[in-house]
């Protein structure tokens, strides 16, 4: 090989190398250069899906690129969690996760999750989907304290529906109430909220927990069921008469459901900041506020630090409950 050719080869090699090494910086500078995706870990058409569609629409102008919502349901959200944890850390795939996907390692009671919270990084809190405890119409109790009193006096009488399997966050709330007040109820598991709602309407169960407010608001207005409590720090503007758990002195002590945006752990700070800023800006738009009020979720801004603090608190409380549950 002669000298000039060798030199040319070196130049090409060096140029190529510099391009490769410069690539992340290049990517960051131009991010986003294509549509970004919000991954919904729960089935399409559910409360989270509806909430995300609102965010996607309002976030789009601040991202400058289309924001898509993609449902990757399965295994209670673990499949979506794994998908995001293993996605390339370039900010184009983000998950909107609840406790089960955010700290999967504490819900290991039955199956080892394929990733842990160390593989993902919270970016910004988005909202809390408000869950309610509905009671069938014509029940012997009108409020949550009355229900607890009734359950204490009549063990194994109240038929209590769960919308999800044992050991999941929504089940842990009910479980912590049972433990706290030492009450015994008939626990009936259902596959999802729709089945539980149907059973409540048919009078086959008395109360249920783990149903989003939106799904039952219409039934409540029609007088077919009542809501004993909602799991939120404050009352909802749409249902001013419905009290929270805490104000009735029956705080189950678990962290209210949060929906926080996560990206793969190795995502560069600049991209994380870009997403954070876009979501924050979207949260301040009147359009999103109105959308949230109409669809039964509460906008709930929080920085990465806020989200991390919340995760720590959730981890403490929930892991203790899971341990206690496993000992039973």
């Amino acid at each position: 090989m002669n000298k000039p050719l060798k030199r040319l080869m070196t130049a090409i090699a060096l140029g190529w190398l510099s391009l490769v090494t410069a690539h992340p910086a290049l990517a960051q500078a131009t991010y986003p250069s294509k549509p970004v995706t919000l991954v919904n870990p729960l089935p399409a058409g559910g409360g989270v899906d509806i909430a995300l569609r609102g965010l996607a629409k309002e976030m789009q102008p601040f991202m400058g690129r289309p924001v898509l919502v993609e449902s990757r349901a399965g295994a209670g959200g673990t499949i979506a969690g794994q998908y995001v944890a293993q996605a390339s850390p370039d900010g184009y795939v983000m998950g909107v996760f609840q406790s089960t996907q955010a700290i999967p390692e504490i819900y290991t009671a039955f199956q080892k999750p394929p990733y842990t919270s160390a593989d993902i990084r919270p970016v910004v809190r988005y909202m809390t989907l408000v869950y309610a405890m509905p009671s069938r119409a014509g029940a012997e109790w009108k409020t949550l304290p009355e229900l607890i009193e009734y359950a204490k006096k009549n063990p194994n009488k109240v038929r209590w529906g769960h919308t999800i399997g044992r050991g999941h966050p929504l089940h842990l709330l009910s479980y912590s109430l049972f433990k706290k007040y030492g009450i015994k109820v008939i626990e009936v598991p259902f596959k999802g909220a729709a089945d539980a709602i149907t059973s409540l309407l048919g009078g086959h169960i008395d109360v249920a927990f783990g149903i989003s407010v939106t799904a039952i608001e219409g039934h409540v207005r029609a007088g077919k069921m009542s809501i004993l409590a909602i799991h939120n720090p404050t009352r909802l503007a749409s249902l001013p008469d419905v009290p929270t758990f805490a104000e009735q002195g029956a705080d189950p002590g678990v962290v209210p459901v949060y929906n926080t945006i996560f990206v793969p752990k190795a995502t560069p700070d600049a991209i994380v900041k870009r997403i954070h800023d876009a979501v924050k800006a979207a949260l301040e738009t009147p359009a999103l506020k109105e959308y949230a009020a109409k669809n039964g979720f509460e906008l709930y801004y929080g920085s990465e630090q806020d989200a991390l603090a919340e995760l720590t608190r959730d981890r403490e409380v929930s892991s203790k409950l899971v341990e206690a549950l496993l000992k039973e």
Partner: peptide, 27 residues
Amino acid sequence: LGIPANVATTLLLAALVLLGIQPSPML
């Protein structure tokens, strides 16, 4: 009643919600 009978009607229910209509017996 505003309750879905299967996966497809669950999605129709979601569509109603997206359109700002609360599914209920009052529909």
